[in-house]
Amino acid sequence: MASRLIMAVFFVQALAFGAWLPRIPDIQARLGLSAAELGYALLGLPVGLLLALPFVSIIVGRTGGRTAVLWSLPAFIIAICLPAFAPNGVVLFLALALAGLAMSTIELGMNIVADETEKRDGVVIMSRCHGFWSLGMMVGSLTGAAAAHWGLAPQVSIPAVAVLALLIGPAVARRLPRDPATGSAGSEAPVSGLFIPGAIMLGICIVALASNILEGAAADWSAVYLRQVLGADPGAAGLGYAAYSLLMAVGRFNGDWVRSRWGGVIVARACYALALAGLLLVVFAPDYPWALAGFALAGFGGSVGVPLAVSAAASAPGTHPPPTWRWSHWCRWSASC
């Protein structure tokens, strides 16, 4: 039961987030931002995430995952509505930074609850949880794309999805099992000192970096690209990230099974080749359908890249034991985002 509840929380959080992404071109047009100005405004979300990182780890470590989810889920859902109302690029940056602050907490909290559920119930659900996250992104993107197609303003469509998420999310989160007694996490040794990464670790970092850059580019720029470069209508432009998320969810739902059957090396090679093929399709697409297929292929190819990189990093020679549960959850978080 707890497994289903936390999967539902992953889904609802992504649903609210996904509704924002296809509306980026509308907000760009409304505010009259150039591509560079939009790029700097979009920087707000990761800046908020990064600023919150050290504090959130400590706070969530004290409160526990369920408590963090209980208050940060509604906070994030409300915060992700704010960018739609921004009157200029600076306020858009600040609104996104605020959403990033809330996002860091909810992402960490969800992953902790999922991990605790795995340990308590003896089940393996992390990959499926992230699959539901991708599924939520897809459904959210589809609602955003539909709203754009019907000419609904972002100030209406994003809060409408948020209201739905607020009705479901907190109600589900309240039914999550209570946090285990705090202290066990804090008793682990803190990370200290710097180390010079070896060639293998640097290589793994490059692989993870490429996957995340692909994900970030697809999330922030797919709708703008399809609309401005390939002339897609507003609704169709939003389908780019929906296709990416759908195939990413498919890849993650089947990732564990495929990896156990063929091994990480073959899966990594195949997936990166597919992602590259998808990327080539996107970049050289003569028209919209080719680019859409490219985004879908890139999503499938990128689905297991970071999880495989994290696993490889964990088992690389010379790697320390998992430093703290907080960092391991951040690794899993970056795999999902």
Binding site: S34, A35, A36, E37, L38, G39, Y40, L42, L43, P46, V47, L49, L50, L53, V191, P197, M201, I204, C205, A208, L209, A210, S211, N212, I213, E215, G216, A217, D220, W221, V306, A309, V310, A313, A314, T319, P322, P323, W327, S328, W330, C331, W333, S334, A335, C337
Partner: peptide, 24 residues
Amino acid sequence: MALVSLVSLVGFLLTPPIIGSVAE
């Protein structure tokens, strides 16, 4: 693992402005 996570975050952080500036 922490390094992989940090590098991933940096990639996520830098993607929007770099693509925006080059697109300009």
